[in-house]
């Protein structure tokens, strides 16, 4: 066990954990961040997506040993910001939410994309979401949701 210090959603956290434990387990079990879902545990589905130093990563394959000093953002840290709310509303209004299990990861993937590229085209959206599996929607309405978030976010000046 080791003390691991990192920033979670803007606040400093110190956890006592085995460096090989998964960030996902620490977020969910120790810190109560249950917006982060476990869909596969093998980095294939994206349900556990979080931002690590601003980059989208699968928290199920990130060992705590890699988190020392890092800045981690989960949906809990994003959902009440203008940026997070914009994506959440856009998905909700586009009919992109069905069973909802992939949706938190889809919000994180959209946030990572729109920060880099606030006006993505359909192909860019599809590429950005390509590591996030969804079995309900067939993806059409998710893609539309990201487009809507882009349009609304531009009006609101979210990425300026």
């Amino acid at each position: 066990m080791q003390h691991i210090t990192f920033i979670l959603n803007g606040e400093k956290q110190v956890v006592n954990a085995d460096p090989s434990s998964r960030l996902l387990d620490i977020l969910r079990d120790t810190l109560g961040m249950t917006a982060v879902k476990e869909g596969c545990g093998e980095g294939e589905c994206g349900a556990c997506s979080v931002l690590k130093d601003g980059k989208l990563v699968n928290s199920c394959i990130v060992p705590m040993g890699s988190v020392q000093g890092a800045e981690i953002t989960t949906l809990e840290g994003l959902r009440d910001t203008a940026e997070g709310e914009n994506i959440i509303s856009a998905y909700s209004d586009s009919g992109a939410v069905q069973c909802g299990f992939c949706t938190p990861g889809m919000v994180m993937a959209a946030a990572a994309l729109l920060r880099e590229n606030p006006e993505p085209d359909e192909q860019e959206i599809r590429e950005a979401l390509s590591g996030n599996l969804c079995r309900c929607t067939g993806y059409n309405l998710l893609v539309k949701g990201v487009t809507l978030a882009s349009e609304r976010g531009k009006e609101k000046g979210i990425w300026q």
Binding site: D18, P19, S20, S21, R22, L24, D25, D29, E38, G41, E42, G43, C60, I61, V62, P63, G65, S66, Q68, G69, A70
Partner: peptide, 27 residues
């Protein structure tokens, strides 16, 4: 960890099942 954390994964809430000592160098 994209290969090793997957290859030696173990059920939720348990530690990966590495057969040897490991060190995390991404930092």
């Amino acid at each position: 960890g994209t290969d090793l954390m997957v290859r030696y994964r173990s059920p939720a809430g348990t530690l990966p099942d590495f057969p040897w000592p490991v060190m995390f160098i991404s930092g």
